[in-house]
Design a protein around this nucleic acid. Structure first.
Length: 578
RNA sequence: UGAGGGUUGGUCUAGAGGCAAGACGACGGGUUCUGGCCCCGUUAACCCAGGUUCGAAUCCUGGACCCUCAGCCA
């Protein structure tokens, strides 16, 4: 078969890449076919085209990974292009954050950084060409009239009385629009297509509108600005994009994308649509994200609870985990809701092999080891990462008084609770077996201290000569040596799986999305923590020294994600069962 | 009720006329100085009805349901 040869050649290319082979998807099938038929001379050029009017979120990451990933896979290039055609909403703060975020994700557009606003002169010329071809006209209807004339989903629209203005008049009018002779809203340039088109996008869509507003890049140069439908396809064409990927809500616009390029007889990329990402327990629409920020439900776009790339970064999510996530969710055309646990899984998978382990007690309970000599202490060796021996070991100080986690002791342990309880013995990680001999309570009956004894023969946490086993190993911190630091515990921003479906999504914000462990006690090795470092707090989760609030001397920890917690699941089931 | 897009286990994704596959989750077990990691196993899906075919998730016909569009937003 003749078709086999080129195909296997591409497979070889893919295998040569040191990045994990991304799964096949329908877009790759299309591109493979285009390469076989020589549609674009075998080239693949994509682009990521954000509008600089908000911060990038994990949904954008899907598009970024797709566009840059495809270009890389096929040996092509991916442009970064700002779709900045609306000076009302766009500014350089957003441009800068977007550049930072795409870079952080790990992608490189080389020198292919573009702005739709760079093309304003050419776009204007294209518009003039369209007028000359009798395919565009200046309409002097008001906004309301245009809406009325458009018709409805079921009824055709009506032609504007200005629709058949002669070419010369349109030319003169458009020129005056551009020169600032008209006020905003008094006229627009429209494509002359078909007011009865079943696809409403084709009912003489607006191409240019008047905006007497300074643009973040072109300043006062223009007072007419192209609409998305006009600017986008032509920007793609100018940049010789081969495959123009966008989300499903633009399917209806593809007809217009094709119409404009055909009318102007210019290079014609193909638009391919895919389903946007929806993630459970959060929101990903720009409108809702802005609301969260502006109404103060979160602390800005970069709040660690936000699904923005800046928020995820601040929280401690890593670019590798996000890329992996974008790989495993795949790309298709059906609406879907990805479970956020998949994102969390990808993050754990990466940090499991890379994050040094350390002991920290978030909710301390004092434990006095009665048979351990007062005032003495010793260093015990702990491994830094059982997944990676090359990360070495460290020494952890032990002494008579230590802290353990409050939740690791229960006076009346239920079934399947393996941790400390009166008269029960457990292991202190890397230290000793201890047995609980007494419980001290305050006036409210709350347990405030445990009295325990230790077995010297279990030093290092090893099984004693008599072969005695324990069912649990607890993390701990020596009181005398403990460091203190604020630890912020982040959880899902919303209590419901699909807050977007709610009447008012704000009513479902998780009140416990941020809690602080104010009296956390940390092992002294954490004195080396600097802003922007990852750790696993053993038995608790992965933590990150907040890059903004930490200083070299005073780290602030963010919980990125908990460890999988089998006991929490058992307890939940027990509680549910009564 | 116009046009367009869509429907495969709980979730996401493969499948292109020939054994419905993988990941996540859930459940059970093994291992373990993290109730983590790892390992093993179980569970569980082609929207419906017809048709074509030796054979249909896949092709055809009809239907149901979901999503998008009536910005001078993108």
């Amino acid at each position: 078969m003749t078709g086999d040869k080129p195909k296997s050649a591409y497979e070889d290319d893919g295998a040569a890449s040191d990045r994990e082979a991304a799964p096949v998807n329908f877009i790759k099938h299309i591109i493979d076919k285009d390469i076989q038929t020589g549609k674009y001379d075998g080239h693949v050029t994509t682009r990521f085209p954000p509008e600089p009017n908000g911060y990038l979120h994990i949904g954008h990451a899907k598009s970024i990974c797709l566009n840059f990933g495809l270009a890389e896979h096929y040996g092509g290039i991916c442009h970064l292009r700002f779709d900045d055609t609306n000076p009302l909403r766009e500014n350089t703060e957003y441009v800068e954050s977007i550049i930072e975020d795409v870079r952080w994700l790990g992608f490189d557009w080389k020198d292919n950084l573009y702005y739709a606003s760079d093309y304003f002169d050419r776009l204007y010329t294209y518009a003039v060409q369209l007028i000359r071809k009798k395919k565009a006209y200046v309409d002097s209807l008001s906004t309301d009239e245009i809406r009325e004339f458009r018709g409805t989903l079921n009824e055709p629209g009506k032609k504007s009385p200005y629709r058949d203005r002669p070419v010369e008049e349109n030319l003169a009018l458009f020129e005056k629009m551009a020169a600032g002779a008209f006020e905003e809203g008094t006229c627009v340039l429209r494509a002359k297509i078909d007011m009865a088109a079943p696809n409403i996008v084709m009912r003489d869509p607006t191409l240019y509108r008047i905006r007497k507003k300074s643009h973040h890049r072109t300043g006062e140069r223009w007072c007419v600005y192209p609409m998305y439908d006009f600017a986008h396809c032509l920007s793609d064409s100018i940049e010789k994009i081969t495959h123009s990927l966008c989300t499903l809500e633009f399917v209806n616009n593809r007809e217009l994308y094709d119409w404009i390029l055909d009318a102007l007889e210019v290079y014609h990329p193909q638009q391919i649509e895919f389903a946007r990402l929806n993630l459970s327990y959060t929101v990903l629409s720009k409108r809702r994200l802005i609301q969260l920020v502006e109404e103060g439900y979160v602390n800005g776009w970069g709040d660690p609870r936000m699904p923005t790339l800046s928020g995820l970064r601040r929280r401690g999510y890593t670019p590798g985990a996000i890329r992996k996530f974008c790989d495993v969710i795949g790309v298709a055309r059906r609406d879907s809701m990805v479970d956020i646990s998949l994102l969390e899984h990808c993050q754990r998978e990466e940090l499991n092999v890379s994050a040094p382990r350390v002991m920290a007690v978030l909710n301390p309970l004092r434990v006095v080891i009665e048979n351990y000599p007062d005032g003495e202490g010793e260093m015990l060796e702990a491994v830094n990462n059982p997944e990676d021996a090359s990360m070495g070991t460290r020494n952890v100080p032990f002494s008579r008084v230590i802290y353990i986690e409050k939740e690791d002791f229960m006076e009346e342990p239920p079934k399947k609770f393996f941790r400390l309880a009166p008269d029960r013995e457990v292991r202190l990680r890397y230290a000793y077996f201890i047995r609980c001999r007494g419980v001290i309570k305050d006036e409210h009956g709350e347990v405030v201290e445990l009295r325990c004894t230790y077995d010297p023969e279990t030093r290092g946490g090893n099984t004693p000569p008599d072969g005695r086993k324990v069912k649990a190993t607890l993390h701990w911190v020596s009181e005398r040596h403990a460091l203190s630091a604020p630890v912020r515990l982040y959880d899902h921003l919303f209590r419901v799986e699909n807050p977007q479906a709610a009447n008012d999504f704000r009513g479902h914000i998780n009140p416990a999305s941020l809690t602080e462990a104010a009296s956390a006690k940390l092992e002294p090795a954490l004195k080396d923590a600097r802003p922007g470092m990852h750790y696993q707090f053993e038995r608790l989760g992965y933590f990150y020294t907040d890059p903004k609030e930490s200083t070299d001397d005073h780290p602030v920890f963010n919980r990125v994600v908990t460890l999988r917690d089998t006991w929490a699941k058992i307890r939940k089931k027990q509680n549910a069962g009564g």
